[in-house]
Computed example of a mutant assay.
Amino acid sequence: MTETVQSKSKEQHVHAVFESIAPKYDLMNDLLSFRRHKAWRAFTMRKMNVRPGQSAVDLCCGTCDWTIALARASGSGDIAGLDFSHNMLEVGKQKVRREGLDHQISLHQGNAMELPFEDNRFDFATIGFGLRNVPDLEQVLREMMRVVKPGGQVVCLELSKPLWQPFKSIYYFYFERILPALGKLFAKRYEQYKWLPESLKAFPDSNQLADKFRDIGLRNVHAYPLTGGIAALHTGTKGTDKG
């Protein structure tokens, strides 16, 4: 019961955070990652090697940058974006329309732990900078694996924890002290950006997250630390048989 209450409390808090920061989300991503998030996503897209016509669902899609990149790479495939924040999706919808991709991309407000899609539907299931915010990350990974086709990929791009000193200490000082101050300065939100370092503390490091991919049954799991380990890409493949 206590765990359920804590999960619901986290879900409600995270929802409030993202509803409030939606208008400044893209600006703050650029500032807080020194624009590295664009390079991380480009690296991820190269590793995914999306082919023409392939389909994807992008969870915690936010303002839809990755959703749009998937649609461009696919060209004609079915691309779905899902987020629980109405305000984030509204920003994303505007981007999708500007890109002329509303015929290819469908956006859904929903819960990443209970996806409104049938089994074996997509070639890829992606989640970018959202897995550390969910109440049960293993449940989200299981749902991602459920909705991809046999042979399809589950892909997670997320902030991570540097494993070597002195960079680790410098990074945590920036993340815990400087980042919330920047949030207050540029987005007029201090408490909301204070949540980001808090969300990372309990999150698995890159090796532990790779183990969770394997634990739920994904195969050919790979972990790629990025920019000294402050972010990481994880990929895993759904098996093509029941064994």
Results as ranks from 00 to 15, higher is better:
Asp83Asn: 13
Cys61Gly: 03
Lys8Glu: 01
Gln54Leu: 01
Asp78Met: 14
Cys156Trp: 00
Ala187Arg: 09
Val154Asn: 00
Phe34Val: 04
Lys38Glu: 03
Leu27Met: 14
Gln12Leu: 09
Arg146Leu: 02
Asp26His: 12
Met28Ala: 02
Arg41Gly: 05
Thr63Glu: 03
Leu159Met: 14
Val96His: 01
Ala210Trp: 02
His13Thr: 04
Asp78Leu: 11
Gly77His: 03
Val57Glu: 03
Asp119Glu: 14
Leu157Ala: 04
Tyr190Met: 02
Arg36His: 14
Asp119Thr: 15
Met48Ile: 13
Gly228Ala: 15
His222Asp: 02
Ser169Val: 11
Gln104Thr: 06
Leu196Thr: 10
Arg98Cys: 04
Gln153Glu: 05
Ile216Thr: 00
Thr240Ala: 15
Leu233Gln: 04
Arg146Ala: 04
Val155Thr: 12
Gly53Ala: 08
Gly217His: 15
Ala210Gly: 00
Leu137Asn: 02
Pro162Trp: 15
Met144Cys: 11
Asp136Ala: 08
Gly81Leu: 05
Ser206Tyr: 10
Pro162His: 14
Asp123Phe: 08
Ala71Thr: 10
Glu138Gly: 02
Asp123Gly: 01
Lys242Met: 09
Tyr190Ile: 02
Tyr174Pro: 00
Lys161Phe: 03
Met28Tyr: 02
Tyr224Cys: 07
Ile178Gln: 03
Cys61Asp: 03
Gly236Pro: 04
Gly75Ala: 07
Ile79Ser: 00
Glu3Lys: 15
Leu59Gly: 08
Gly81Asn: 05
Arg97Gly: 10
Ile21Asp: 03
Gly228Lys: 15
